[in-house]
Design a protein around this nucleic acid. Sequence first.
DNA 1: GTCTATACGGTGATAGAC
DNA 2: GTCTATCACCGTATAGAC
Lengths: 208, 208
Amino acid sequence: MTTSPRTRRDGTETRALARRTALRLFTEQGYEATSLRQIADELGINKASLYYYFDSKEAILQSLFDERGTEAEQLLTWLREQPRAPELLEAAVLRWVDSCTAEKLQGIRFMTANPLVARTLTGRPGGDRIVAGLTHFADELAALLPDPSPQNVMLLRMAVLSINAAVSAAPPTGIGDDDVIAAARRAARAVLAEIRGGGPIEPPPRSP
Amino acid sequence: MTTSPRTRRDGTETRALARRTALRLFTEQGYEATSLRQIADELGINKASLYYYFDSKEAILQSLFDERGTEAEQLLTWLREQPRAPELLEAAVLRWVDSCTAEKLQGIRFMTANPLVARTLTGRPGGDRIVAGLTHFADELAALLPDPSPQNVMLLRMAVLSINAAVSAAPPTGIGDDDVIAAARRAARAVLAEIRGGGPIEPPPRSP
DNA sequence: GTCTATACGGTGATAGAC
DNA sequence: GTCTATCACCGTATAGAC
């Protein structure tokens, strides 16, 4: 081995810092519009030094996807072991929405800013696991719909992606992460209610 | 003049075709990932010939924004001459949603695929009039909210942008434009109801 | 209007010294 | 680990013949 414990530790720290920097720049400017030179400059290192930590620019992207790629899959695993019930629909959607912490929001922001970039990694291991995982998640939930009309399937997908919609709708500044997440939750519930009721009118609860 | 009527007519047709081709490629692959060579190839002309119709790649982008930039402004103009009333909120949002024809959807798809590209044109005349116009629209509507809390402002913005959310949520194929628009409308109404009621439960209609 | 040829810069990436 | 130097390539854009 050529790496001592000390250099190894410094290395992984720099690598982690590079990932965070890349994530920020990719989110602000887009993946294609961000050059390796720019990332290196912000890190205070030379452009070529980045290649010590990553094999290519695409490898940086890949590592960002890998970091957060398992979440959607875990959600899917959880869903498949739940007993089928009408309440599962709302429970599952809200489980996903509520799992979104303020830290996870930056991942959503990155994906929202680069909606097409996932296709760059298609075919490779761990490519677009987030997108694919959420898609499968929504598709599996669609089987629970009493009326799986195209519109209702669409509304279900919109409920699942309410966090993304909230991030897209949020102005660049002035609204805190908490309110973004809370708004996403309320929107998801409202859309789910629309699917159930076919309209805003809910039958009043009846006690026997 | 160096252009005869005949060449002039052919020219504007080619220009229009180039715009449509660019719009499609920008939507499929992204603005930065699409090269002028690619656009020229699909048109069956040389790369350099594009510069007869457009001064630069950015000029192509600009022309696409100009084509659909006035709609949000017209909406804003309409809003400002409406009498203030509680029903104006939902009426205004639905006016925007319902104005979305199947043809207009491709504009939304382009913007959804290139969320950051509007900033490329900021400062220039007619830059991001769509985004800015819709933002102003939502902000003006926010003044009509009984409770303009950050969450409610967020929800209002999400209702206005429900078309964008629907486009983002729609799978690449399998769902028609009509269902996408219809789902957006239902989602917008559901979110507006959530703002009004603060919850999915609506009081049942009471006849005196 | 369309072409060929070319200029120019920036990009991702590699080799090798230290 | 970080650097300098260098590479091939592709991007936009221009000049000028036809």
